[in-house]
Amino acid sequence: MKPVIAAVASAAALAALVAGCSSSSKSTSSTASASSAASTSSTSSASSTASAPSTSASAAPASGATTLKTADSPDGQILVDGSGRTLYLFESDTTSASTCDGACATAWPPVTTTGTPNSSGVTASLVGTSTRADQSTQVTYKGHPLYTFADDANPGDINGQGSTAFGGKWYVVSPSGDPITTTATASAATPSSTSGGGNGY
């Protein structure tokens, strides 16, 4: 009888041990699953944060706004653009609306802008814009539409000063907004009548 009782007790103990191991395994599996899920969630969240675009970068100002400033020239202080190219007005423009289109606009490209023009060293209240026939926005100064000159290859060139083309005169512009009608460059280029004549002749 005792061997039977011992066998039963042994079987009961074994069953309890198996049950305990199963419970421990389930607990370990549950803990591992929870830990894995938490790790995956944390990694996903970090990845989402890293890939999110910066709001400060998207707040950068739009480009394309023309800058007006002044520069020295043989004719005095004149208006130039942000690259230092000389700006001109066309005397045939009697209002802020440009009358220079087609071939004229090819030879005398209008100064256009895609934003509010910037100014440096000029009178900001004189800076304005007008709408051209092609719906582009042209920069004006004291009501004068502004242009560059195709034959001005470099900043500082004023090859268009005093030209007559497309039915009117073209002049560089002073900081006051008035045309500079003098041509100091032409005077400087005129050879002196007192030079030369040496060599005993």
Rank of each mutant, 00 (worst) to 15 (best):
A150G: 01
S45K: 07
T43N: 05
T31R: 14
T114C: 04
W108F: 02
P3A: 10
A165W: 00
G197E: 03
T182A: 14
S29P: 01
Y147I: 00
S29Q: 14
S73P: 03
S42Q: 10
I180D: 01
I78V: 15
T43K: 13
A71V: 08
C104Q: 01
A34K: 12
V18H: 09
S51Q: 05
T181P: 02
T123I: 06
E91F: 00
T129E: 09
V18M: 12
S176P: 03
E91Y: 02
G167H: 08
Q77T: 14
R132Q: 04
T164L: 05
S92H: 03
G177H: 10
G143P: 05
S187K: 14
A12F: 09
S98Q: 01
A150Q: 10
S192E: 10
S96L: 07
D81A: 05
L126I: 01
Q138T: 02
T113W: 09
Y88C: 00
S56A: 15
S33H: 12
T43P: 03
S120D: 14
A46S: 15
D72S: 15
T67C: 07
S120F: 06
L146D: 00
D81Y: 05
G162V: 03
C100E: 00
Y88V: 00
K26A: 13
S96D: 08
S174L: 08
L79K: 07
D178N: 13
S176K: 09
A6K: 14
G196N: 06
K142N: 15
K26P: 02
T94C: 03
S63P: 08
S96E: 03
L126Y: 09
A46Y: 07
G84L: 09
P3G: 10
S36H: 07
L79N: 01
A15L: 15
A37R: 11
A32F: 09
